Amino acid sequence: MKVLLVCLLLFGLCSCKSEAPLKSRNISEVEIETLLQDSLLNVRALEIDGDGFGFATSNGEIGVQGFTLPSGINSPDSIVLREIAKKTIQLKHDSIIPNFRSLSINDKGGFLLSISSPTLLYRAGVDSLKLVYKETHPKAFYDSMDFWNDQEGIAIGDPTDDCMSIIITRDGGETWTKLSCDDLPKAKEGEAAFAASDTNIAIVGDHTWVATGGKASRILFSPDKGITWEVFETPIIQGKETTGMYSLDFYDENNGFAIGGDYTKPNDTLNNKIRTIDGGKTWQVVANGKGPGYRSCVQYIPNSNAKELVAVGFKGIDYSNDSGESWKHLSNEGFYTIRFLNDSVAYAAGKGRISKLIFKE
């Protein structure tokens, strides 16, 4: 029962990119407030809404903090929900502890996706926790998940055949269907993706971009919510299993940014940051040989006209106010993933903690 109640709290969580009047600025520091700390905590799946956040861990735990209960909950369980919101709850499937790397939501509930075989995708609804997709292929490994709207969503993973694995729902997450390789671009040898920060997928309207990585690192693009696909080459570093794009974000239908590198050589700064201004058709290397080395997540700051970016990784936090041409190192504090609440506040998660980040000029 407690698992079902805490899952209910994930219902309604979402990341937010609200628009407001633009302002020119230059962030010079970041204040870090630790909200949740535990040496066993390992978080790459994070979603926020309002002043709260939901998360899923590599140890099969889920939790929320600072979350306002959804309207309409008037049962005595509301008191219990408030208590559970302060804790983390362990999930198991038979004897398997899921390694969660992806978390997404819509008005139907919260969705939690584990990585390796058996891949487990749960829907946490108002009154139930349901396993809605399971994949037992020995090569199954899912990296990221997102939704176009309340009914349609997508998750991507490494190839099990000769294409990237892509599953799609059209019924609010009740059922998921894996696309045939006949309908997808063929994967190159050694091409896969990284489950580093749940940011391999970027969605703007009906447009969808998927970042691959490894020995080949390309962009898969769909203009119609996953019905048709094409592929674009990128100049990011690639050629090894540990190289390529680790994170992707789009500000609008034209402006996008990707970051990565080689996590085994985190200080290398060559060819690990790329930008597009034509919707992903072509990409250019920026800040080559300078700025951050390997980073696992990059996000546009809201209301910045595609100018301001923040990148995080286990080597620290970096900021750009010129679309990635130059970067300022703000902190050595390491995180795996980040989500912005507004243009000055974000939540970040990583090994051992979840923190609130306040960016200041």
Rank of each mutant, 00 (worst) to 15 (best):
M1Y: 08
M1V: 10
K2G: 08
V3W: 03
V3G: 12
L10N: 04
L10P: 01
K17D: 12
E19V: 13
E19I: 14
P21W: 10
P21A: 12
L22H: 09
K23L: 12
I27A: 09
V30Y: 06
E31F: 09
L35V: 13
D38K: 08
R44V: 03
I48L: 11
G54S: 01
A56E: 06
T57G: 11
V64C: 15
V64M: 12
Q65R: 14
F67T: 15
F67H: 12
T68F: 06
N74S: 15
P76G: 02
D77A: 09
K87G: 00
I89C: 12
H93R: 07
S95F: 10
I97S: 07
P98D: 10
P98K: 10
F100E: 04
I105V: 12
N106M: 04
K108L: 07
I115A: 13
P118H: 08
A124E: 00
A124V: 07
G125H: 08
V126Q: 15
P138I: 14
F141W: 02
D150S: 13
G153D: 02
G153W: 10
I154T: 06
D158S: 05
T160C: 10
T160R: 12
D161A: 15
I166C: 01
I167E: 00
R170E: 06
D171Y: 07
W176L: 04
C181H: 09
C181N: 11
D182C: 05
F194W: 03
A196E: 03
S197Q: 00
T199D: 05
N200Y: 01
I201S: 08
A202T: 04
A202H: 06
D206C: 06
H207K: 15
T208V: 14
V210N: 04
V210F: 15
A211I: 00
G213M: 08
K215I: 11
R218I: 01
L220H: 10
P223S: 08
E230S: 15
I237F: 00
E241L: 10
T243D: 15
T243M: 14
F250W: 09
Y251R: 02
D252M: 06
G256R: 11
I259Q: 05
G260C: 02
Y263F: 12
P266M: 04
R275Y: 05
R275C: 12
D278H: 11
G279K: 04
K281G: 02
Q284E: 13
K290P: 03
G293A: 01
G293W: 03
V298H: 02
Y300W: 03
A306L: 07
K307I: 00
K307G: 06
L309R: 09
A311C: 08
V312S: 04
G313F: 02
S320I: 10
D322Q: 11
D322W: 08
S323F: 07
G324T: 06
G324I: 05
E325C: 09
H329V: 04
F340A: 04
N342F: 12
Y347A: 00
Y347S: 02
G350I: 02
G350C: 00
K351P: 00
R353W: 02
K356V: 06
F359E: 02
K360C: 03
K360M: 05
